[in-house]
Design a protein around this nucleic acid. Structure first.
Lengths: 230, 230
DNA sequence: ACACAATATTCATCAGATGACTTGTGAAAA
DNA sequence: TTTTCACAAGTCATCTGATGAATATTGTGT
């Protein structure tokens, strides 16, 4: 086994065994490298790899820490990854969104609270009141996220937020038929919202599936070039 | 921006722009480091991070290559991650499995082929014929994977295989009520199989949801310690 | 008790040297 | 001609040591 693999396995073992608990500070690089029997360079590469996976976090001047290990938290680090997926794969993500967001919407409808309904009402009203595509995109993202959160599964919520992040770069609200897109999108949100108001999980699920499918349709139709910032 | 971040962004940009295409070989470390304006050490850490994310692959003595960038392929690298998730998070993964595998099973039922049916028949027959828990675990995994594959979404298939990988470590077939577990599990597989034979997507979905829920129930009940190898 | 400066700890980066592995080349043998 | 083998070049892997930068701690003076 290579030195870096040795270090990664060693760290993984320390974490899995509880010797290094989530949030805990690790020994300094030099000491840790000695413990694991590798050089500081190799240990640093191992830590860098685990950092990329969201398992550890190195803070300059302070130390290296084990992260929370919550899937929802870890998923946030993968946005960079989704950005470079090929277009066809993005379409596969939409199918997954369709299934999972429907599921979450049904759960949200079953357990909705006045607070959730109030927030969703406000978001939909704001979306219908503006034509600024950036604002709409933000409101739309929050609308879907709030429903996922209400579903009660933080991992699912994180996964959906991650998958949506790529779609947002395509800015379908800015396309040639932007007005039409907004109109149908608003209608979709209304349908979902009403189903949740009625505490109707089945309708919430089908409305959400239809809405996501609609987004997918537009994305396929326009297939605008993604905006790569940075 | 730190040196390693600079290198990662640079590599990401080269990949996103197509300068480095999937499968392509990168320039040697020294040259790449010079291009990006960082030291070899920093570049190596960046490459190590991208390797952990499944975006690149360094082959000793040969060179560094850009990976296929297929989500299904990239997901395979995350098994290490799922291994260290806290137990409660694993339960959240089961809810996701329930939704997604149901979806895939419905799709598989709608588009099943004689080849798929033949394989599933054989897998179920073998599972019913043995009591070896390791074999059963393998066959069970293949059964679910084959159905996901038939669903036609490679990303979804990869995601499910990843999520299942953690559950397998718990070896519920070896628990105190192993015989009972096997019996109910086999019944669940029969139900799913028959629904697919009948080309009945709705039944396939509900049978799959019930089967996954059953697995989740047992896992909660026994909560056996995971076997950490390595 | 508080503010602030000095000190210590720790990660970040760089440079250079050496080892290990892969690959292609060319010569020798079949 | 084809196959086999040794060798050399190219490349990644690892280690060491030194220096810089950010943070945490300590001590001091008010």
């Amino acid at each position: 086994m290579s030195a870096v693999e040795t270090a990664m396995q060693g760290l993984r073992a320390k974490i899995a065994s509880g010797e290094l608990a989530p949030g805990q500070k690790c020994p300094p690089e030099g000491e840790l490298a000695a413990q694991l029997g590798v050089s500081r360079s190799s240990l640093r590469e191992a830590i860098r790899a685990l950092s990329a996976l969201g398992v550890m976090e190195a803070r300059h001047g302070s130390g290296t820490y084990v992260s929370s290990l919550e899937p929802a938290e870890i998923l946030k680090g993968f946005a960079l990854l989704v950005d470079i997926f090929p277009f066809d794969s993005v379409l596969e993500l939409f199918e997954i969104r369709r299934a999972l967001e429907s599921h979450a919407a049904a759960a949200a409808a079953a357990r909705s609270t006045p607070e959730l309904l109030a927030e969703l009402d406000e978001l939909v009203a704001k979306m219908e009141a503006t034509e600024n595509s950036a604002d709409i995109s933000d409101l739309d993202a929050r609308f879907h996220e709030a429903i996922c959160e209400a579903g009660g599964n933080a991992t699912l919520t994180g996964l959906m937020t991650l998958f949506r992040s790529r779609g947002r770069h395509f800015n379908i609200f800015d396309s040639a038929e932007g007005a039409k897109v907004r109109e149908v999108s608003n209608k979709g949100h209304r349908d979902i919202l009403e189903a949740i108001h009625r505490r109707d999980p089945a309708s919430a699920a089908t409305a959400t599936a239809a809405h996501v499918a609609q987004s997918e349709f537009w994305l396929k139709k326009f297939r605008p070039a993604p905006q790569l910032e940075g």
